[in-house]
C-alpha cells in the first residue's frame, strides 16, 4: 500500500508526466474531425482507427521516462536493495501510470466516441475496451523503455511496437462487431486474458532488465 501511495505522490506532483499525454490525446481527437468533412457519414469508421492509434501513441509518450528518472537519481538502486519484490514495485508503478493517465484517457476517449457517433451505448461499450487496452499498451511500452533505459526511450518503444500490432487487429475486429451489432464480449475477454498474462510477466521481465542495467 505504501508503494502505491509513494508512486502516486511522485506522479501527482510531476504534473507534466500525466497531463502532457492526456492533452496530446485530447488534441489528436479534437483535431481529427477538423481534417475531414464534418458531415461525412464514414466519420464513425475513421474515428475508431484514429482512437486506437492515438491511444497507442499517447501510451508510448506516457511511458517515455517511466523508469529513467528513478534510474538517474539512484532510486531504482535503492528499490533493488529492498527485500520486497522489485517486480511488484515496478508493476505498481505501471498501475499508477494507468490510473493517472490510462483511466482518464479511456474516459475521455469514451466521451469522444459518444460525441462523434452520437450513440451513448457505443460510447459506453468502448470504455472497458479502452481501459484494458491502455493498460496493455502501458505494460508493453514500459517493457520497451526498460530495454533501452540508457539508450533513449524511442529505440525500445520501436522494438516493442510489433508486439502491439496484433492488438490493433483485435481492436479493429471489436469495432466491426460493435458496428454490425454483434456481441463484442468475447473480444473483451480475450483482451482481459492478454492483460492477465502481461501484468504478471512484464513486471517480472522488467525487473530482470533493470537489475542488468544497474549492474
Amino acid at each position: 500500500m505504501k508503494i502505491f501511495y509513494f508512486e502516486f505522490l511522485k506522479l501527482r506532483k510531476k504534473s507534466r508526466g500525466w497531463i502532457g499525454p492526456i492533452l496530446v490525446f485530447v488534441l489528436i481527437m479534437t483535431a481529427f474531425p477538423l481534417t475531414v468533412e464534418f458531415l461525412n457519414e464514414d466519420l464513425d469508421q475513421a474515428f475508431f482507427s484514429v482512437l486506437w492509434i492515438a491511444l497507442m501513441l499517447v501510451m508510448m509518450l506516457a511511458t517515455e521516462d517511466i523508469f529513467l528518472e528513478d534510474y538517474n537519481d539512484g532510486s531504482l538502486e535503492q528499490l533493488a536493495l529492498k527485500n520486497q519484490s522489485l517486480a511488484l514495485i515496478l508493476g505498481t508503478k505501471i498501475f499508477i501510470y494507468w490510473m493517472l493517465i490510462g483511466v482518464p484517457i479511456s474516459i475521455i476517449g469514451s466521451f469522444y466516441g459518444f460525441g462523434i457517433t452520437r450513440s451513448f451505448d457505443l460510447g459506453l461499450n468502448i470504455l472497458p475496451i479502452l481501459l484494458v487496452t491502455s493498460y496493455i499498451f502501458l505494460n508493453v511500452f514500459s517493457f520497451g523503455n526498460a530495454l533501452s533505459l540508457t539508450k533513449g526511450s524511442v529505440l525500445g518503444t520501436l522494438i516493442t511496437m510489433p508486439l502491439v500490432l496484433p492488438l490493433l487487429v483485435v481492436l479493429g475486429k471489436v469495432v466491426i462487431s460493435i458496428n454490425i451489432g454483434l456481441n463484442y464480449f468475447g473480444f473483451l475477454v480475450l483482451l482481459l486474458g492478454i492483460l492477465s498474462i502481461i501484468i504478471v510477466v512484464i513486471p517480472l521481465i522488467i525487473s530482470f532488465i533493470i537489475r542488468a542495467h544497474l549492474e
Binding site: K10, K13, D73, G74, S75, E77, Q78, L81, K82
Partner: peptide
Amino acid sequence: DVCFTGHKNALKQY
C-alpha cells in the same frame, strides 16, 4: 534491508 547511500542521492528534485 541494507542501508546505503552512494554517489546518487535518490532524491526527487521536483
